[in-house]
Design a protein around this nucleic acid. Structure first.
Lengths: 119, 119
DNA sequence: CTGTATCCATGGAGATACTG
DNA sequence: CAGTATCTCCATGGATACAG
């Protein structure tokens, strides 16, 4: 293996196939089981930590915190802490995060079309 | 935990949030590091096994075969074997797989816009 | 050329307990 | 309420050798 950058793809590949690199970049940013769902939930309005946790039925606190931190580090969501007791933290999409919404909407549409039907 | 189906989401959640389930369905279908890239590569024309392997610089044969089989099982790609020596196998998108192209194009666009620049 | 079989390393994610 | 700190489990995927 020659030079491999931290995204796991080598430089030759990047130069030869910009499209590939763009796709890989976006995919890496959205890796993780819950990220699409978190972004979808923040689409319409900001939400508190516990609201997200309730929606994502089954996620553990540890996982949720980690995913939120990663989304924040990638500039997709904002984290706003209100100095109250009890504490309140609101998460919302950044403008960068909002640009992922068309993708999520298309995934939703595809899933509705082909996913298993429920009564 | 009450009833959990094999997709990992419980039935209550599915009924309450169809959108979530649609997104999760699509995401599960595209889980795996290489699937987006394979579909992107098949967008314009069908390709042979080794052509895909060459493009995906660094993928092992075992992984590639597994991902191709999963894509085939999910109805996203066709596998056509030509009875020749040496053997020739061509992969192409199904009509279902073609409907994922808009998603991949958007991901490519997002990645080009925000990904690291390369000289 | 197009795979299959096997083993193994890694990381994502859940469970649990604890905290300001 | 909104986390943090560990521990553990297991699926994903890579390496390697072999095969039709």
């Amino acid at each position: 293996m020659s030079r491999i950058s931290k995204d796991g793809f080598n430089e030759e590949c990047k130069k030869d196939h910009r499209e590939i690199y763009g796709i890989a970049y976006t995919q890496n940013m959205l890796s993780g089981r819950w990220k699409y769902l978190i972004l979808w939930f923040l689409k319409l309005k900001s939400h508190r930590y516990n609201e997200i946790k309730t929606l994502l039925w089954g996620i553990s606190q540890g996982s949720l915190t980690k995913q939120l931190r990663e989304l924040e580090a990638d500039g997709l969501i904002n984290r706003k802490v209100y100095p109250e007791v009890p504490p309140r933290v609101e998460y919302s999409l950044t403008s960068k995060g909002e640009q992922l919404i068309p993708i999520i909407d298309l995934m939703e549409e595809f899933g509705k079309k082909f996913g298993d039907k429920i009564d």
